[in-house]
C-alpha cells in the first residue's frame, strides 16, 4: 500500500503517493523529480543528501518518509528565490567552490543553515559546520572562501529580497 504524504517542499505544499519504505531522499528524487539533492552512500556517511527539514540541516537518506508528514523541506532547488540565486550560490559559482558539483547542493544547504543561525561565523566555525559534508574535488579552501565572501555579500544587503 502506498503512503500519502502531505508536506511543504521549497515553500509549496506537496502531495505525494509514495512507496512507504522510501526515505525522504528517494521521495524527493524519484517521486518529486527534485534531483538536485544528491546521494553518495545512503548511509549518512557523506553529506551529499543534506536538506533542511523544519529549518534544520539533516541527511535525507536517513529520514523515513512517514516522518515527513506535515513538515517543511527545503532542497537546493529552494535556495533560488524569484529566479535569483542565493548569495551563497553566487559566491560558490564565482569562486570555484563547486568543481564537479556533486557535493555542492548538500554543502550549500549546510552553509545556509549556518548563516541563518549565525550571520558572522569565523572560518573555524564554518569549517566545523560543514564538517559533515565530504568534497573530493576542491580541498575545501575555495568553499571556505566562498562562504566567507557570501557573508560579506549578505552583510551588504545583497540577499535575494
Amino acid at each position: 500500500m502506498k503512503l500519502r504524504l502531505n508536506f511543504s517542499v521549497n515553500g509549496e505544499s506537496a502531495e505525494a503517493l509514495v512507496d512507504p519504505d522510501k526515505t525522504l531522499l528517494e521521495v524527493l528524487r524519484e517521486d518529486l523529480q527534485l534531483t538536485g539533492t544528491k546521494h553518495g552512500c545512503e548511509l549518512g556517511e557523506c553529506g551529499a543528501c543534506a536538506v533542511l527539514l523544519d529549518d534544520q540541516p539533516v541527511l535525507s537518506c536517513l529520514v523515513v518518509s512517514h516522518e515527513c508528514e506535515g513538515r517543511s523541506v527545503v532542497t537546493v532547488e529552494g535556495l533560488t528565490v524569484d529566479g535569483r540565486l542565493h548569495p551563497l550560490q553566487e559566491c560558490f559559482a564565482d569562486l570555484g567552490a563547486s568543481q564537479c558539483g556533486y557535493c555542492t547542493p548538500g554543502i550549500l544547504i549546510a552553509a545556509k543553515a549556518l548563516l541563518d543561525r549565525e550571520p558572522n561565523p569565523s572560518r573555524d566555525l564554518i569549517r566545523e559546520a560543514l564538517s559533515g559534508n565530504l568534497c573530493r574535488c576542491t580541498g575545501y579552501q575555495q568553499i571556505l572562501d566562498a562562504v566567507e565572501a557570501s557573508i560579506v555579500r549578505l552583510g551588504e544587503g545583497g540577499d535575494q529580497k
Partner: peptide, 16 residues
C-alpha cells in the same frame, strides 16, 4: 557554474 550551484547539472542518476 550556475548549473552546479543550482543543482541543475544532470548527472547520470538524475536522468528519469
Amino acid at each position: 557554474g550556475r548549473a552546479k550551484v543550482t543543482g541543475q547539472t544532470k548527472f547520470a542518476d538524475d536522468i528519469m
